[in-house]
Amino acid sequence: MINHTPIADTYQRRFTYLRLSVTDRCNFRCNYCLPDGYCADSQEDYLSLEEIKKVVEAFALNGTRKVRITGGEPTLRKDLVEIIHLCKSTPGIESVALTSNGYKITRLLPRLVEAGLDQLNLSADSLRAENFKLITGHDKLQEVLHGLTLATELGVKRVKLNVVLMREHNLEELSAFVHFVKNKPITLRFIELMQTGDNREFYQAQHVGGSEIQEQLEKTGWSQVLREPHAGPAVEYTHTNYQGNVGLIMPYSKNFCQSCNRLRISARGNLHLCLFAEDHHKLRPHLLNESSRELAKRIKTLLGYKGEAHDLHQGNSGSTKHLAMLGG
């Protein structure tokens, strides 16, 4: 029997959203995340399809309604289509989303949609090909843009483009980014650069406060829209003259953690109660020995250890060395 009342923590926050990492590998070298490229820090295998099935079933029993597949770069998994289908066919799961850098998205997207993909987030930290390559290490801007168009043509319900704002690398493109959604039915989301274990100096030089962008949007006629059920942390805006929307993810904003509704599983089966927590909880030893219902009870108990808020304001990013570890 599916639990229609989502599990809650000690602060009465209810959790309906699972971010499931299926690999920590990434083929990009983004200057704010993996400037030196991917380097494995574990020889342990990633979760198998059988293990993923058990995890998703357990979360569904606990009231999870949305699963987002993240990485690293999830399209590096050869069984990604099977993963999407598995998630969408799990009783209780209403929506399956994917976050990708878009490297080969146009080749995979038709099969992903057929498997049940509902939402797609791609990334482009510049709309200029040369600058995109400088930031990511790859000349793939046109592939990402084609992926956005194809996703809308294939009927993906929500299509988003993520942009990490950096003062010296793309802030001057702010107007171009906003104009990008004037005639496109997508949401462009500006994400505040977050400090992690290995980017302190970069963060200090490049961080742009989301409140700066929020103020500009509101001065130019953008109005805030209601947050959808099971949505992520973005504050989203609409404008009568634009077909698309603009969102802001502002982890340094006041009360950011009050609306938290998501939990995270790493590619090797660790439960992370917060992206920036010091500790995590190993679920993998229990995946084959416990039933989905027993695992669901274990997750519910562990949720009692979730803290009230992260410590990013104090410069503490917990055990998160870089965002590829958990996909944000």
Results as ranks from 00 to 15, higher is better:
V81N: 02
V178A: 08
E228R: 09
T187A: 09
N270F: 14
A115L: 07
N62V: 04
D45S: 14
L303R: 05
E192T: 07
S42G: 12
E278C: 06
G37A: 02
E172C: 09
S317Y: 13
R14T: 14
L287Q: 04
V181F: 05
K282T: 12
Q224K: 13
H239C: 07
L188F: 05
H146C: 12
Q43V: 13
S223P: 02
K53S: 15
N241T: 10
S123N: 11
S259G: 08
L145R: 06
T5L: 15
D125M: 02
K282M: 08
L288H: 11
L49G: 04
E278A: 13
H4S: 14
G269N: 03
R158D: 12
P74H: 06
T5A: 14
E201V: 07
T75D: 11
G328I: 10
D9W: 00
A296E: 11
E294K: 13
H239R: 10
M250D: 10
I299C: 02
Y237A: 00
L122H: 04
P74C: 08
K297A: 13
V113A: 12
L49M: 02
A296L: 10
L295F: 01
L122S: 04
K160L: 12
R128Q: 10
H310Y: 06
M194H: 01
N62W: 08
E51A: 09
G232R: 08
F15R: 06
P233V: 05
L287Y: 02
K254A: 09
G307W: 03
L288D: 07
G147W: 00
E173P: 12
P110A: 05
Q214M: 13
K78H: 10
Y305R: 08
R293W: 09
A296H: 10
G209K: 06
G92S: 04
L226V: 10
F202M: 03
L76P: 06
S211F: 10
H169M: 15
G232Q: 09
A176N: 09
V55E: 04
Q12M: 15
S291G: 04
L312I: 10
V156S: 05
G71A: 03
V67Q: 01
R77K: 11
T90L: 00
M1P: 10
L188P: 02
D118W: 01
S266T: 15
H207Q: 14
M325D: 14
L271H: 02
K254I: 10
Q258W: 08
G102M: 05
L76K: 04
L20I: 00
G307F: 02
L323T: 05
G304A: 08
A277R: 05
L20P: 04
T240M: 09
V55P: 03
V113K: 15
I186L: 09
S126R: 01
E73L: 06
L295Q: 01
R264P: 04
H313Q: 12
A296T: 06
I249H: 01
E143W: 05
F59K: 01
V56M: 01
L174A: 06
E114G: 03
N261C: 03
A151R: 03
K140R: 15
V178W: 15
L174C: 07
A129K: 13
S175M: 13
G197W: 07
H146L: 14
K160N: 12
F177M: 04
E172T: 15
S253M: 14
H169C: 12
E290H: 11
G327E: 03
N255F: 13
T196V: 13
